[in-house]
Design a protein around this nucleic acid. Structure first.
Lengths: 209, 209
DNA sequence: TTACATTATGAACATTTGTTCTTAAACAAC
DNA sequence: GTTGTTTAAGAACAAATGTTCATAATGTAA
């Protein structure tokens, strides 16, 4: 292995960190070089230009843990877990905002969302649609098995997903000011408890009659 | 009225539009001048520097319609409207994403959220906390009147608020790519219907017995 | 009309920034 | 060790950018 690989990775990571922190446009090649410990001109031995670093970061987003809240499991394999599954997914979102790597990816995504069309495509297809569609299938199967009440599965998926995203954004935002995230962090679990309680089919409590 | 007022307003609006579109850092004084129809140097007759424009925009956010989803009404005056109130609030969010002025403000806020501490303070205090707290009170009063089931009012407020914010972001994001927002737009109403149905106290259907 | 203040212009400047180029050092293969 | 390739340094450049300044144009008040 040549020394290239190591330096290139360092550049990549420094750039990602800085892009997430202050945005692509506000990050300079000199800053990136400084973080890595080389002069800015040496960066060009590893990347064609500044935009090539950005492109490579976006390329790799799809392979990251930022989006894989289902851990590659298919809905029909897991839907029977019911509430436990929702808890698990909810916890994935929480972990994303607390893991240094995924937190950086999330912040990067939000930073550049309106400035990069490819990133919006990624957000829409991989981060949003893919997960919401999988959630839809999960809820649909749960309805078939009479675990939850029958409604529009896509609506349920959106309603379950939206607060998780929002709380995630809250955490990342609070961390930007070094504020306490404790209160926001509890909302992940509370959301799941609340949500499940509202959609599950309550057993006909026969003891009443 | 001097001609100053007109030009200053034009500069302010052009800057806001550009900041929302491409971000503060990526917007140049020359672009702002071009939008207004003057040379960049003339801007300095109205604003001390580029940052002063940004500061003034943030100053004015608090007076904008972006945050005033309660239209200055107090919870106890309106909570009795029940579901109709939630519909009204939900509709406010929808309108924000479709009104050109507030849509720009929202996009600006999201663009600069991680780059400006004052903006984060505004987001937290005026956009989030203020509204969620008011919502809490609304839900608390609804519980007292036995309109909805008793739970943590603050949780309810967050659960009602989060999807509205998320759908708002979806709309603004879709508009950035000139994509159709129809499907996302329906979610505002569906959210309210779903949410209300899950929290309201179902009348004991005495005909069953 | 005169006098004063406000605003726009055009040129200019100092920095910053992305990028290139030449040269030297570090490394790998033989 | 020699040779060829890869990588870093340093200088340099052109373009972009925020800002200033002197001057001219415009508007206002008497």
């Amino acid at each position: 292995m040549s020394k290239t690989a190591g330096t290139k990775k360092k550049i990549y990571e420094a750039a990602l960190r800085l892009f997430a922190l202050k945005g692509y446009k506000a990050t300079t090649m000199r800053e990136i070089g400084k973080e890595v410990g080389i002069r800015q001109s040496a960066i060009y031995n590893h990347f064609k230009n500044k935009e090539a670093i950005l492109d490579e970061i976006i390329d790799n987003l799809a392979k990251s843990n930022l989006i894989n809240i289902f851990e590659d499991k298919e809905p029909k394999e897991i839907y029977k877990k019911g509430k436990a599954l929702l808890k698990q997914i909810s916890n994935m979102f929480k972990l994303i905002s607390y893991n240094t790597e995924t937190d950086t990816l999330f912040r990067f995504m939000m930073q550049e969302l309106f400035n990069n069309e490819r990133l919006r495509v990624f957000y829409n297809e991989e981060f949003y649609q893919k997960n919401v569609k999988k959630l839809s299938v999960v809820f649909f199967l749960m309805m078939q098995d009479e675990m939850i009440e029958a409604t529009d599965p896509l609506l349920l998926a959106n309603e379950f997903f939206a607060p998780l995203f929002f709380y995630q954004l809250q955490i990342v935002r609070l961390k930007a000011d070094n504020k306490s995230t404790a209160a926001a962090a509890t909302l992940f679990e509370k959301h799941t408890d609340f949500f499940w309680d509202k959609i599950r089919i309550k057993e006909k409590n026969s003891t009443l009659f």
